[in-house]
Amino acid sequence: MNVSASMSVPAVSVTSSTTIGEAARQMDVYGVGCLVVTEGEALCGVVTDRDITVRAVAAGLDPDDPVREVMTSPAVTIDVADDIHAAYRIFRGSAVRRLPVLDGPRVVGMLTVDDLLMDVFRRVADLLGPIAWSVLEEPPGPRDEIGPRA
């Protein structure tokens, strides 16, 4: 399965001159913890809720300072055509929880650790579904503990 099947679309984007305060408001409005920072269609970096908390608020920066002051650059990314297993490897090998998804140089979505958890839940459900149904048809345990069949 490709990354495109699990990613969130579209990724919420700001420019590097967007203020830290405005970036925080955009995260609140869209219910996200990470924004891609772009100039034109080119990815410059990412700014996360943690970047704002640790690099801006805790460091005493002004909310009117630009996000370029606190963004992470370069960003760890993944290609839209990559297999989902590549995403698992990238998440394991890096300290990030969100990956901008690229189609060439363009950002086309965002893949998060939560998206991969949903993938895991789907796979477990696919695996356990038939087992669960067989248990419902034939409950486990000796018959005398569960009573006679109807």
Rank of each mutant, 00 (worst) to 15 (best):
V46M: 08
T48C: 10
D49L: 08
R50T: 13
D51W: 07
D51T: 15
I52C: 14
T53V: 15
R55S: 11
A56G: 15
V57W: 05
V57R: 04
A58K: 12
A58D: 07
A58Q: 13
A59C: 10
A59T: 09
G60M: 07
L61I: 00
L61H: 08
D62M: 10
P63D: 01
P63N: 06
P63H: 05
P63I: 07
D64F: 01
D65T: 06
D65R: 15
P66L: 01
P66W: 11
E69Q: 05
T72H: 10
T72C: 06
S73K: 02
P74W: 07
P74R: 03
A75C: 04
A75F: 06
V76N: 00
T77H: 06
I78E: 00
D79M: 12
V80A: 07
V80R: 09
V80K: 13
V80F: 01
A81K: 10
D83E: 13
D83G: 14
D83N: 14
H85L: 14
H85D: 11
A86S: 04
A86W: 00
A86H: 06
Y88C: 09
Y88W: 05
R89N: 10
R89I: 10
I90Q: 09
I90F: 11
F91W: 10
F91Q: 08
F91S: 00
F91A: 13
R92H: 13
G93S: 15
A95Q: 14
A95R: 12
A95H: 15
A95N: 10
V96P: 02
R97A: 11
R97T: 13
R98V: 01
R98L: 07
L99R: 01
P100W: 03
V101A: 02
V101R: 01
L102R: 01
L102V: 08
L102P: 01
P105W: 02
V108G: 00
G109Q: 11
M110T: 03
L111W: 01
T112S: 15
T112C: 05
T112V: 09
V113C: 06
V113I: 14
V113S: 14
V113G: 06
V113Q: 10
